[in-house]
Design a protein around this nucleic acid. Structure first.
Length: 403
DNA sequence: CAATACGCAACTCGACATCC
DNA sequence: GGATGTCGAGTTGCGTATTG
């Protein structure tokens, strides 16, 4: 005791173990010096820890009523699980507030089995994903955000507050994703991959039926890729590094692409194929024609993929493991050429037109609640962006989404 | 004696006030 | 409006007591 203390530089993002032990963390990644020295598992919080978030040492975070949900905005850091470590062994239960636990309960009982609603795959959403969520807190945030959106979808009276709550969790899920993607390893590639899918679902849901102009004034840019195009690149990086590990693990079934490679667009089984094919006239021989042609062929394939499941008998889909029609949009978005996504971001008319036809294609799988309303939003936003000059080419997508 | 626990000084940073 | 200062809540990690 006595004397002056040694001056020191404070870190702001030390690892969970060093914080718990109240010792200096050098923040080396993937393992800090202290954790290496004492052979501890070194985990960094999956979300940004705002300077004003309550101390992780105090256990006062079980306080659902201290801040009305309606006052929670994306710029107001929500106390509670923002600093939960990514290891289940280190999650103090007091860091979850009662509302989060309620959302988790809803995920396990209801939302998880509503995503694809197929017996063979429900287990993955209901059990495997929460397990990954215990290891990677950003995945847990994603699960909670989808759960909140699902409640908002089911109960219009609770819509506004649940959408706000979902936005909070989504923002933390994104923060964690951004942090972890710089350190892809066998330990986190499952978490990163599954989080990308969940973030994607979130994006779809929020510009579908649950779109709320009071909360989100920039739906147009979001629908046209402001959110999901950068995410697409992230998924590509995760799969480049972790593909073998993911396919060898519990998420294997999410990566299985069945007969996609052999699938051929078939005008006979798709009566609307002519509407898709005809938009080639728009870019015929012009700049980027090859990119648009390739993207359009992928879209036709995506339609063939969805249609084959519509026509399958239940016993056939069970042979497949489950109906995979819901994966169609993901496959198209993921396989679309990078150049196409750039052209879409630039709002080139041909790219927008293809995207509107993709929107119309989504209409075929609107039985999934998370896609309900997306097709109309996409077509509306594209139509507004293109203007009346393109109405002739937008006729069919507009018709489809009004059905 | 090394590892762990934790009191509390030092520090950070947002909010607000004041001045230019 | 921007720059600067002050305040105080919250966070970090030094240094020491305790434990095995």
């Amino acid at each position: 005791m006595g004397g002056t203390r040694r001056a020191h530089q404070k870190s702001r993002a030390g690892c969970i173990e060093c914080k718990r032990r109240r010792i200096k963390c050098g923040e080396e990644k993937p393992r800090c010096h202290q954790c290496k020295k004492y052979d501890k598992s070194c985990e960094y919080a999956g979300s940004t820890l705002g300077p004003s978030t309550p101390s992780t040492r105090s256990s006062v975070q079980l306080h659902p009523d201290t801040e009305p949900l309606s006052q929670r905005t994306s710029t107001t850091p929500v106390p509670s699980i923002s600093s939960v470590p990514s290891s289940s062994a280190h999650i103090p239960s007091s860091l979850f507030d009662a509302q989060d636990l309620s959302l988790f309960h809803h995920w396990c009982l209801t939302t998880s089995i509503s995503i694809v609603n197929t017996r063979n795959l429900d287990h993955l959403w209901q059990t495997t994903l929460p397990k990954i969520g215990f290891r990677h807190i950003y995945v847990m945030h994603s699960l909670l955000s989808l759960s909140a959106l699902h409640i908002a979808y089911l109960d219009p009276f609770e819509k506004h507050s649940n959408i706000l709550n979902a936005a909070q969790h989504h923002s933390k899920a994104l923060d964690g994703f951004r942090q972890d993607i710089d350190y892809i390893s066998p330990e986190n590639c499952d978490g990163l991959f599954v989080n990308a899918i969940l973030i994607f679902l979130y994006t779809f849901i929020t510009f579908g039926k649950l779109y709320d102009p009071a909360i989100d004034s920039k739906v147009g840019p979001r629908i046209l890729g402001a959110d999901w195009i950068p995410l697409m690149r992230g998924v590509g990086i995760v799969l480049q590094v972790g593909y073998e590990h993911i396919t060898a693990g519990p998420l294997n079934s999410l990566l299985s692409i069945g007969n996609w490679m052999e699938l051929c667009p078939d005008p006979e089984s798709d009566p609307d194929d002519k509407h898709i094919v005809r938009i080639r006239e728009v870019w015929n021989q012009g700049d980027n024609a090859a990119v648009y042609d390739e993207t359009l062929e992928l879209l036709r394939k995506c339609r063939a993929w969805i249609i084959q499941f519509e026509k399958m008998h239940v016993e056939d889909t069970s042979e497949w493991g489950h109906s995979r029609s819901w994966t169609g949009p993901f496959l198209w978005l993921f396989l679309a050429p990078q150049r196409y996504l750039e052209l879409l971001a630039q709002r080139q008319p041909s790219a927008l037109l293809i995207f509107a036809h993709f929107g119309a294609t989504l209409h075929a799988i609107r039985q999934y609640w998370w896609i309900d309303g997306c097709s109309k939003s996409i077509v509306d936003v594209v139509s507004e962006s293109l203007g009346p000059y393109w109405d002739h080419w937008m006729e069919w997508p507009k018709q489809v989404v009004e059905r």
